[in-house]
Write a protein that binds this DNA or RNA. Sequence first.
DNA 1: TTTAAAACCTGACGGTTGTCATGTTTTCTA
DNA 2: TAGAAAACATGACAACCGTCAGGTTTTAAA
Lengths: 211, 211
Amino acid sequence: MSKEELKKVSDTKTTKLFKKGETIFAENEKLNGVFCVRNGVSKLSKLSPNGKDQIVKLASKGSVLGQRSVIVEEISNLSAVALNDMEACFIPKNAIVNTLNTNPNFAVEVLRHMAHDLKEADDVIVNMSQKTVKQRVAEAFIYLKNNFGEDKDGYLALTLSREDIANVVGTASESVIRIISEFKKKGLIKTFGKKVAIVDPQSLNNLAEAL
Amino acid sequence: MSKEELKKVSDTKTTKLFKKGETIFAENEKLNGVFCVRNGVSKLSKLSPNGKDQIVKLASKGSVLGQRSVIVEEISNLSAVALNDMEACFIPKNAIVNTLNTNPNFAVEVLRHMAHDLKEADDVIVNMSQKTVKQRVAEAFIYLKNNFGEDKDGYLALTLSREDIANVVGTASESVIRIISEFKKKGLIKTFGKKVAIVDPQSLNNLAEAL
DNA sequence: TTTAAAACCTGACGGTTGTCATGTTTTCTA
DNA sequence: TAGAAAACATGACAACCGTCAGGTTTTAAA
């Protein structure tokens, strides 16, 4: 959703706060508006029949949550949970729908945004189905670095639990833990508590791309 | 893309024919329009770094190919290949873009369609990352039945090669072959040449859903 | 119709990965 | 701050699955 267009609407709205771990909306919930992330990061996930939670996307500042469901007027297919303390503003459904129907530019902006998401989703499908767990973990670290950056000591700015990493990558947390300690032994990454820092980006990338 | 809206445009266009196996467009190709499928089925796939082709979507009558890339004005992220003899009409880029910018209804229709694709993609991500190969093969057969139907003898109307099934499911063709013969032994399916018929939909479904 | 190529099938085998079990460390909260 | 709960870590083990290697059958082309 376009930042400029949204600003018009969102600036008139008050900001909601969500604490770490708090649910913004659940799967199969009827949404009567979207949430625009101002601060913090949210995980969008879907429960699979085997009882595990698959994280489909990590949404940070500038992302809009729930737009898909609002547009097609369906209950949500994903749940959104705060990974750290978050600020988000709520935009009611009718504000969105009205603007969509009257302002072609807005519709096209939203369309562009969704087209981007769709491409990303295609890439995820290919990665999930063609790469090994080890490659996917390597890729996840690269993704976290590229999208959320590093802190002043070089550690990934977004710290995920081993469990959450497992849910991004689609594996068991034990496997993630094992792979992390393997990467450490090989000098690809280092850790401090839950924090992870990429030490050898080149080798990590080669591993992820199967070179 | 909305069938009504598209009809206006597409009815003025001539139909192109593609033979089985023919490429409609390749990955990383610049598209100057979209293809609207009139007849036949196309596979949309993406080459993964390990050299395997991942089929992301099967598109049949009514589907539009290439709209994502045209809308965001990027080269295509997928390739489209005919699985059987196809009829498709070509709609040039500017016709799409013009209508998008002037007709909000059209934009919203396209948006709805893309939102649907996005939800489907999310589901595929969950399936790929959380289910076993066996479950995914079972699900693929159910999908083929629900989306393309059966012929008069009860065989799936769309016949895929073992290789293509493997590329849908994200595995090796040998694994697909082995799983097919296992399903046959268990009385879940039967085959005649390359053709597959679902014999026990209930059990097949239970298997796919991990019940 | 003959022949080559492609698709299909099966077996063997080893690496990968999920599960269970158990122990340690960290985090949360009363 | 003590105790409980959650998260992290590691080992053992079996099932899963990809790969290789060798066949057979089907398809397509000469």
